[in-house]
Simulated scan of single mutants.
Amino acid sequence: MKTIIILIVALFVVWLGYGMLKNNETTTSGADVTTPTTKVPNQNTNTVTLTPSAPSVETMSTTATSNSTALVTGQVKPNGAGTSYWYEYGETSALGTRTTSQQIGSGYKFIPTPAYITGLKANTLYYFRLSGSNRFATTNGATHTFQTNTNPPPQGSAPTTRTTSATTISRTTANINGTVNPNNSATTYWFEYGTDTEFGNLTAFQQIGSGNSQISASVSLSDLAPLTKYYFRLNAQNGYGTVNGPILSFTTTGPSNPGQPTADTTSAKNVTSTSATFTGVINPNGAQVTYWFEYSEDSLLGQLIGSGTPEQTVSAGTKNVTVQTDINLIPKKKYYYRLVAKNQYGAVRGDIVSFTTNK
């Protein structure tokens, strides 16, 4: 009998995982409904305007039962407003008892909504339905039934989830992070994020198996707005329920619009009779920069020595970056040099700095 219970639970979890992946496939093709705005491009490059509304709710008839428990599931689409879901159940169609509410954000994708109902009577027929609610209305799904039996309940619990700080934050990108413990049941995780605590955006569903240890979860976000505060949280789900991690935030860097870099020539270092290190400071101002040093024995740099030092690059960013280049020179000569930096928005030259090589 124990083998039968394990088989039922395994089949239920496989069905749940397949439903998540299938839902993710169908909602990421065609119209993209997880962008921060309510205007969504379709396959014909037209624009569809999505208006927030009451959630869409579908109760699934598939269940896995024991003598005192039932695994039930369905799916809910929040339709643009922060939404919670729960199940109502009872021994008659009047129902009468409900599970704890779970939060699923405000996106425009259907999200699987499992729940693990406990405290049931053996060999009893129960009615149940899924409900979802947001600020617009509460929507009730269809009512189905399940029958408990004499089998002992399966062993397992909902996952443990923790949201951790965002990293590698730039003008338009960031990595959001967290940890999940599946607690011995096949588990899927995803992140929600947006410019307020209703989020509105979902990352892809990721499966992490059924172990019993903390697993790192991380997703790279792109196409973010500069100088904007974003809220995010990690969610995890298995056959025993959905768990929301704490809400954290980060702010993307500036400038609002990238521009030409700044370049500041600084004093030469490590000066010997035959070499020196040219130094300077660059701020890329949001776009990748190419830089080099021009140098000459002419104080106005009217006659450069060659074409200057080899070109090097600094990645896009908004912080000052110290750069330097080693160069071979002639003894007892006075040299003049300056830093040159350019990106797609323009080129700039730093002030001219001088030094004299040793004897």
Score class of each variant (00 low, 15 high):
Thr3Tyr: 11
Ile5Cys: 01
Ile8Asn: 15
Leu11Glu: 13
Leu11His: 09
Tyr18Met: 14
Thr27Arg: 07
Ala31Arg: 15
Pro36Trp: 00
Lys39Ser: 14
Pro41Ile: 02
Asn44His: 10
Thr47Lys: 06
Val48Gln: 15
Val48Tyr: 06
Ala54Glu: 14
Val57His: 05
Thr63Arg: 09
Ser66Trp: 03
Asn67Lys: 15
Ser68Asn: 15
Thr73Leu: 06
Gly74Gln: 08
Val76Lys: 03
Lys77Thr: 10
Lys77Cys: 14
Gly82Asp: 12
Gly82Tyr: 09
Thr83Leu: 07
Tyr85Phe: 15
Gly90Gln: 07
Ser93Pro: 03
Gly96Val: 07
Thr97Arg: 10
Gln103Cys: 00
Ile104Lys: 08
Pro114Asp: 04
Ala122Asp: 11
Thr124Arg: 12
Ala142Arg: 11
Asn151Phe: 14
Arg162Phe: 06
Ala166Lys: 02
Asn177Gly: 02
Gly178Ser: 07
Val180Ser: 06
Ala186Asn: 11
Tyr193Lys: 04
Phe199Ser: 02
Ala204Ile: 00
Gly209Ser: 07
Ser213Cys: 00
Ala217Pro: 10
Ser222Arg: 01
Leu224Ser: 02
Pro226Tyr: 00
Leu227Asp: 13
Thr228Gly: 05
Tyr231Ala: 00
Gly239Leu: 05
Val243Gln: 10
Ser249Met: 01
Phe250Tyr: 05
Pro255Tyr: 02
Pro258His: 00
Pro261Met: 01
Ala263Asn: 09
Thr266Asn: 05
Ala268Cys: 10
Phe278Ile: 05
Phe278Pro: 09
Asn283Val: 06
Gly286His: 03
Ser296Met: 08
Ser299Glu: 14
Leu304Thr: 10
Ile305Thr: 14
Ser307Cys: 03
Lys319Pro: 00
Lys319Ser: 15
Thr322Gln: 15
Tyr337His: 03
Leu339Phe: 07
Leu339Arg: 04
Ala341His: 07
Asn343Gln: 02
Arg349Tyr: 07
Ser354His: 02
Ser354Pro: 04
